[in-house]
Amino acid sequence: MNTPQGASTVTATRPTPTPLAIASLQPELTGLDPDAPVKLRAQDVSIRYGDRVAVRDVTLDVPEHSVMAFIGPSGCGKSTVLRCFDRMNDLIPGAAVEGRVELDGEDVYAPSVLPVEVRRKVGLVFQRPNPFPMSIYENVAFGPRRHGEQGKARLDDVVERSLRQAALWDEVKDDLRKKSGLSLSGGQQQRLCIARTLATDPEVILMDEPCSALDPIATLKIEELIGQLKVDYTIVIVTHNMQQAARVSDRTAFFTLGEDRAGYLVELDETLRIFTNPANQLTEDYVSGRFG
């Protein structure tokens, strides 16, 4: 229904993106709410780095309070698309975004919109844990402080709540101020980064391969966490781990590289369907490990 037919010059070699099939799913079977409002929307989005088109003609909706996974081979533009939702592409010299990106129906790239405002509503967790070289407490309090929260009691409160949400509180509560964020293990650092993002009270959380540097136990903790967070937040997660996508997400978007070396969205569907009965042969090959 929202295939970017008119927008793109579809070449013969490229498979036409499959229409979204959400409407055809039976809600009672999937547990998905078909009437949930759209939180994030990309419409005919193409992103270039300098002259090189990294991804083209991406159209997708992320409904509120759901988890969407981005999967696909390396270099197909998953991170690039993810970053356009909180305008982190602005930081890369030469990066240019075309098309329309919406948050709650409003154009994220409108001239009147400040990137700072977008990023306060849309948090980003990076692939590599990157805590600040400060105490655990200061790491989590960083966002709230910058946004004007000075009250000690309230900061204490935010720090504790965020660390609890990120399932880190019990491990660090005794040396919040003594220990540097950098002295934690990789998995703890990543949860600290998630807590740091939660503390700024975003509406959307973007995660770019949050578990790629973590062991299975830490990964499990983060996956559980995502399951809990989606009650309050809208989440988009990039992952190379099929099982992870299957476990944590409600919907999955599969991207791949076209013949022109630009990435594009092949298929977006309910996760169950992507992994059991995808509409596109490329998707099937990829999820069953027959890719490349």
Partner: peptide
């Protein structure tokens, strides 16, 4: 590290806040 700046900006700080509170102390 560039990470530090992106981390701050991704939390919705301005560039000056990132400089003032992350880059300068580091």
């Amino acid at each position: 590290p560039a990470d530090m700046r992106s981390a701050s900006l991704a939390l919705g700080t301005t560039r000056w806040q990132a400089i003032r509170h992350v880059v300068l102390p580091a």
